[in-house]
Design a protein around this nucleic acid. Structure first.
Lengths: 145, 145
DNA sequence: CTCCGTGCAAACTTTTTGCAACGGG
DNA sequence: CCCGTTGCAAAAAGTTTGCACGGAG
């Protein structure tokens, strides 16, 4: 686990006048290790939190200060991952069979086309586009078998 | 409301050995009128269902037979819309301020680039891509003011 | 006459909140 | 010391299920 990461989170938290407590550190550590959107249950089971209420409260704090991102996909389990400020711009592949979500980076062709389309949306619909997220839905390697 | 739509739904339901009851018809009618992902509450308030449990059950049936699609976005309200079999391939713009979700059609450049990227994901990660969904996140016209 | 769909109420799951105790700054 | 964080327990919100009635095939 890189100290850089913890320093970044620490800064983000301080900016929001929040502290980098052990509980929050454990969450960040887990997310950094797993490198994919993780369910709340996975976090508690993985020992990243002692109490569910604290976990939710800390995730909320970390989300608001921009350290983690809440990810909802097809199934009804809420997942969390490190924000793009702490990782990299990426997208998700969702297995419609087992519900697992994995990270994926898409080629510049897609990103460029999407950037242009965003400007269009802005002009046509008056919708200010701040970001985007692509979800590829299908069957993961394990579920294809 | 086009009869075509109801005929299509009717066929989809029959294929799943289900009936096109008034309750289900009302849901489809609402979704067809609103033409955007709608929350469960919006459906009940709009008079599309008399009982919440029946609404959930019917949405589940309609989803399984391919008539409606469950849409989850950033906020925690589940939304439903007509499936692409009954509408057209489209994507969503999500207002991160008020949570509203609207439909948007993206230019072929994006779709093409994404199609190529999907093949890549398939080859690189062994993930069989069946479909995709793009979410543009930002601020809607009303919330920009 | 037999099922399927419906509505009500209760159960269940997930998330949020109240409150008292703890501990770092 | 003070205030933010924590853990427990209770509450709230959203969704699902059990059961009996009613209507359609």
């Amino acid at each position: 686990m890189s100290d850089d990461l913890h320093d970044l989170v620490s800064t983000q938290l301080r900016r929001a006048r929040q502290r980098y407590t052990p509980g929050r550190r454990a969450i960040i550590a887990s997310l950094a290790t797993l490198r994919r959107p993780v369910t709340v249950t996975e976090l508690t089971d993985g020992g990243a939190a002692s109490s569910i209420s604290s976990l939710y409260r800390n995730l909320s704090v970390l989300e608001q200060c921009g350290s983690v991102r809440r990810v909802v996909s097809s199934d009804d389990l809420t997942r969390y991952e490190l924000s793009e400020a702490l990782s990299e711009h990426h997208h998700h592949v969702v297995c419609s069979h087992c519900g697992t979500v994995a990270d994926i980076t898409l080629p510049p062709t897609v990103e460029d086309a999407l950037a242009k389309a965003s400007v269009l949306a802005q002009n046509l619909h008056g919708f200010r586009v701040d970001g985007h997220h692509i979800e590829l839905v299908g069957a993961c390697a394990a579920c294809t078998n």
